[in-house]
Design a protein around this nucleic acid. Structure first.
Length: 650
RNA sequence: GUGCCCGUAGCUCAGCCGGAUAGAGCAGCUGCCUUCUAAGCAGCCGGUCGGAGGUUCGAGUCCUCCCGGGCACGCCA
């Protein structure tokens, strides 16, 4: 399991029984588990596997190994219990080891210096992670939270293991949908179409909401009117042709006739302004969540240059926007990709479209070019993958996208392999469950913008923050009147929403429930932060009473309570939880670990009510505050890895 | 119909590479605040791990089939 198990295993490997049976310390460490009941011991060694290899009965082997056991060091006692070897550990020695480890790795008062749990397995490797990726001209709804926060947490988890991680927001900013939007704008707002002929930002102060309504209205009307639907396709074709002409001969855009050029510019300006409006709104939402995105390519305004080699810190602090349109408007990767697929005879023409049959002829193919000549999102995704591979020399890439797109990514990876891009083996789809909403008939269904059942992300965050404000006013009037109030309410409210989303396995569907999200008791974000805050305030109490604590001088021998021992063991297992969460792209593993740690901590808090953590015995108080310090830093580090902000009071 | 995901306590979920008597939270019930924050703690109640076979010393965990739910399945992204 963790570094404690490794140390214990190293001691056991020296016993004559293990020497005789030729079982080395690595094998021992792998076979160590926790006994079902604490009174059976702290660790158990299961002999089954080794008994089979040696051709003896497990019970006999256990007895033989126990006979040759030497205690002392980290191990206090060994008993053979049937096929198991139960070990009782030297609590003081283990506690001392664990606390020292945390104090060393997480020295410093600032959360960003807390590195206990970090690893080096990813050192020198680059992961590209596709996260959030909303469509422009649509507001961010609650379900966007999933890709954003799962992705953001994975980014930090991998960084903690030494990876360089490039977070990319693959904005949905290209495709026939934008033809419909343009057509809608032109039809319902003729003055905008007129303005677009001369102005850069023709949409005025239109909001994302209004853009979305325009799109929805156009869609409704196009549904039973062929001519209107065609108008949408045409507008997109005009836009794409305009861009194509610019790319082919950038110096001679005049190749298009005057009319095509004029309508191209109009469409381009409407599209571009709609994109700007959307990004401005996304920025506000990402700021709430603590994420920062920069437009790609990144322009260094100070030196007026485009960054070609970004410092490593850049990717830690920011993710980047690289919209789908980038591969059409700024790179000719789409066209080269299509040519390549044709030359290699990987792609073929079928029903007027250019396709790749990735799963055989009887399964739907991946569509590169649609029958109307426009690129499909498959093509743009492939171009994006090639670009990422080329630019960031990635070792691994994952897409944090809902499970309903499984087929798309299966096709994407197979198509890349068909074109001899074997690195596609290191690409994966980090799928997650749907966000479901209860309808009037009681059934749970996907969000539907059409029916208006979608809940806006900003609305959810506002509600959560407001609920926190109410609770603070009720429970902590002193804080309610202080200048910190707003910052705390925001961190706790947003944290509640984030933790709620990350605490369960990502593949589970989430039935959105206001009561559950705004329930701040039990396994909730506020509960986690509450335990963190308690650890801070009790440390403060020590400072007031005895002065600045020198944690290292706390005597681990004084931590004799069972509650304290359980906490020590949980702290010891934290690095493994982080490593596994990172390897599996599964933030909930860390969240679950923290729930357990917070619960143990809270029980301990109550169990020490009589003597207090900081009480009249200065030595005991220092020992306990030493543990408090370790808990606080591990809890704080874990919550940060989940993308939550910490607070000192609440 | 085909493929993928899921099925564990009334509800929402954990459960590691198969290992000893399957765990949390919520809801319900009983207690616990003059003290470092009760957004808390202790306890009770609650399970044929969807079903049937199989693999083996041992299956919630692996395999097969079935049942139930969700999602996807050619030009939206």
């Amino acid at each position: 399991m963790g570094f404690i198990e490794n140390k214990v295993a190293a001691e056991m490997a020296q016993w004559q029984g293990f020497q005789a049976a030729e079982i080395n310390s690595e094998k021992i460490a792998e076979a160590l588990t926790r006994p079902p009941k604490p009174d059976m011991g702290d660790l158990a060694f299961a002999t089954f596997r080794f008994a089979k290899d040696a051709g003896v009965k497990p019970n006999e082997l256990a007895a033989k190994l126990a006979h040759g056991a030497e205690t002392g060091g980290l191990i206090d006692a060994v008993t053979a219990a049937g096929p198991y070897l139960n070990l009782t550990l030297n609590r003081t020695a283990i506690a001392s080891n664990v606390l020292t480890e945390i104090e060393t790795q997480s020295a410093g008062a600032e959360a960003r210096d807390w590195r206990y749990g970090d690893g080096t397995s990813g050192r020198g490797n680059t992961l590209v992670i596709d996260l959030s990726s909303p469509n422009i001209a649509k507001p961010l709804a609650v379900h966007h939270l999933r890709s954003t926060m799962i992705g953001y947490s994975i980014k930090q988890l991998r960084e903690s293991q030494g990876w360089q991680v490039v977070g990319i927001n693959h904005l949905g900013d290209w495709g026939t949908g934008f033809g419909k939007l343009i057509a809608g704008v032109k039809q319902y707002f003729p003055e905008i179409a007129e303005r677009a002929k001369t102005e850069e930002s023709p949409l005025g102060d239109m909001t994302v909401q209004e853009l979305n309504e325009t799109y929805a209205r156009f869609n409704r009307e196009a549904k039973d009117n062929e001519a209107i639907a065609e108008a949408g396709k045409d507008e997109f074709a005009i836009l794409e042709r305009y861009i194509e002409a610019l790319l082919v001969k950038p110096d001679e855009p005049n190749e298009l006739d005057v009319a095509a050029k004029e309508s191209g510019i109009v469409n381009f300006r409407i599209w571009q302004h709609a994109r700007e409006i959307s990004l401005a709104e996304f920025e506000r939402m990402y700021a709430h969540l603590g994420l920062s995105f920069k437009l790609w390519p990144v322009v260094d305004t100070e030196h007026a240059t485009v960054l070609t080699k970004e410092p490593a810190s850049f990717y830690r602090e920011h993710c980047i926007y690289v919209g789908e349109s980038y591969y059409v408007t700024a790179e000719d990767l789409c066209r080269r990709l299509i040519n390549d697929a044709l030359e290699n005879r990987v792609a073929e023409e079928d029903e007027g479209a250019l396709v790749i049959f990735t799963h055989g002829k009887d399964k739907p193919p991946l569509i590169l070019v649609k029958s109307d000549g426009a690129t499909s999102y498959h093509a743009r995704d492939m171009a994006a993958a090639l670009y990422r591979k080329r630019h960031w020399k990635l070792d691994e890439m994952t897409y944090v996208v809902g499970g309903e797109q499984k087929l798309h990514f299966d096709q994407l990876f197979k198509a890349l392999k068909a074109l001899d891009h074997d690195w596609a083996d290191h690409c994966s789809h980090t799928d997650f469950g749907l966000m479901l909403f209860q309808q009037s008939d009681g059934k749970w269904a996907k969000t539907s913008t059409r029916k208006g059942t979608a809940i806006m992300l900003e609305h959810l965050l506002d509600e959560a923050v407001q609920a926190v404000r109410d609770i603070i006013r009720e429970k902590n009037p002193e804080l309610a009147g202080s200048p910190d109030m707003e910052q705390v309410a925001h961190a706790v409210g947003v944290g509640a929403v984030v933790f709620n989303d990350l605490k369960n396995g990502r593949r589970n569907n989430v039935k959105f429930d206001w009561d559950a999200v705004l329930d701040f008791e039990g396994e909730s974000g506020p509960y986690m932060l509450y335990q963190f805050v308690r650890m801070g305030s009790v440390t403060e109490k020590y400072r007031e009473k005895y002065g600045e604590p020198v944690f290292e001088q706390g005597d681990a021998d004084r931590l004799g309570l069972d509650e304290e021992w359980k906490i020590i063991q949980q702290l010891a297992a934290f690095p493994d939880a982080v490593a596994k969460a990172s390897a599996d792209f599964e933030p909930s593993i860390v969240a679950r670990h923290l729930v357990e740690l917070a619960g143990l901590t809270s029980s301990w808090w109550t169990a020490t009510k009589d003597t207090r953590i900081v009480g009249d015995d200065e030595g005991l108080s220092l020992s306990r505050v030493r543990l408090v310090n370790a808990i606080r830093k591990v809890l704080g580090r874990g919550l940060s890895l989940l993308g939550m902000s910490l607070v000192e009071r609440m």
